[in-house]
Design a protein around this nucleic acid. Structure first.
Lengths: 105, 105
DNA sequence: TATACTTACTTACATAAAGTAACTAACATT
DNA sequence: AATGTTAGTTACTTTATGTAAGTAAGTATA
């Protein structure tokens, strides 16, 4: 079963953003370029999945990976222009969440 | 590992929207209330997963389920106010996708 | 010199989520 | 009684994610 009447670009965007962790990784990188372990501890993702996601996002042109030959080597991840352009989407989600999401407590 | 420094409301919103299919179901319901099988064929989701998602979304107060005692019985799904308020998020994603997503072809 | 330490991963294995197809309940029609 | 319809559910397979230990490349420490 697969006869979507939905715009393929929109579908692709949705599948990018609803890949688990991807939106959080992008959100995290909105505050500037960061290293693997910084992202990992900021959002609480496993190394394996973070590694997968960063590769995905790099292939989709959302994230850029840069090797800085310091000692020890530093690998910095940052957003491309395409990635930064998702800020408006994430800000929308952020403000929606403040209005509508209740934290049970 | 789990020490997120991220706002819990935002995280919850992200986890709602990055549940696979949820955003597409909500998007589909933006065009008006619909029956199970309509949603199913519009977005190409299996009955099992659609059933799960609709229950989830109902519990989160995003979707409303209404039984209309016609013959045969009609079950209509629609967005609540909370659900409709996600329109801005989905429109952002939609316009982002038009600018940035390339369909390979 | 050997051992330990760091970062950025990868591998192996376990669990959870999603896909597929067949099946069911509650009717109504033929 | 047999068939059809809608809105699901069930059993089973495949895929994705989580967890923990391991690795490579290089530096620092004993």
């Amino acid at each position: 079963m697969k006869q979507p009447t939905i715009c393929p670009k929109f579908e692709k965007a949705i599948s990018l953003l609803s890949q688990r962790w991807s939106a959080l990784v992008i959100y995290q990188l909105l505050s500037g370029s960061q290293r693997f372990s910084e992202i990992q501890s900021a959002i609480g993702i496993s190394g394996k999945v973070l590694s997968d996601r960063l590769k995905d996002l790099e292939h989709q042109g959302v994230v850029k990976r840069e090797v800085i030959p310091e000692t020890p080597v530093i690998i910095e991840y940052s957003l491309t222009e395409k990635g930064r352009s998702l800020e408006s989407v994430l800000r929308e989600i952020e403000s929606w969440s403040q209005l509508w999401v209740k934290t049970e407590a």
